[in-house]
Amino acid sequence: MLRDITLGQYYQTESVIHKLDPRVKLGGTLLYIISLFIFENIWGYLLAGLFLAIVIKLSKVPFRFMVRGMKAIVFLLLITVVFNLFLTPGEVLISFWKLKITKEGLRIAIFMAIRLSMLIIGSSVMTLTTTPNNLTDGMEKMLSPLKVFKVPVHEVAMMMSIALRFIPILLEETDKIMKAQIARGADFESGNLLKRAKALVPLLVPLFISAFRRANDLAMAMEARCYRGGEGRTKMKPLVYKKEDRLAYLVIAGYLVIKIVIGIIL
């Protein structure tokens, strides 16, 4: 059923990683991604892989959930690999017809594949262990210095969390309107592209009207509950760094230092 789709693929369980402050996880993921792109050598990648493996183990999320995120980008990954493999100039290893595989190309292709896979799995760990709500909270807090430059950080975070709340409702509504139109003989499945696009009108118009009506109702309900933007607002669940969070920052910093040292020495 549509209503059971969970957004942001959060995996519910109790673990050290789950309990970390979302800012630690956001910042950590960012630093980890950067670490993947500095210095290119086997030992560095081994270290990054080891670090990731430990975090995954600690998170208690089954590994197959991590790989799930990979499926979506398999195509992208293949293209990157193929391009690097065939289009990098250098010492030719194998050649047939007009295509040549070079030693350098092979090397870059392998590294690129490893990098991208670790990047995706690394970000999956973050989304799997943090509720969408927590993520928006973390982002709001982390980006709050931007308020000085008139970036509407609070508003954007509020919009994201409202979207997260209403997406399941709108999905369910889509399902309902679709069924209602099918009951009136609508056909969403056959015909060419143009015909199919046209068939969406009876679905999209009611959906937009409903979304606007809901937005209007919600705005009124929020005002009635004294909402007037981020100014002067307190938080029910304020983000406070705990001992574990500071420790996690230290671990990440330690990892980065070792990664850089390995990169320079080897």
Binding site: R214, R225, Y227, R233, T234, M236
Partner: peptide, 23 residues
């Protein structure tokens, strides 16, 4: 169309948050 929070308790806390009540 009037529930803002994604968890029941967070929604109930929305009004007091807007009023600036301590956590």
């Amino acid at each position: 169309n009037q529930i803002i929070g994604q968890v029941v308790e967070e929604d109930v806390g929305f009004g007091p948050e807007n009023m600036g009540i301590p956590s």
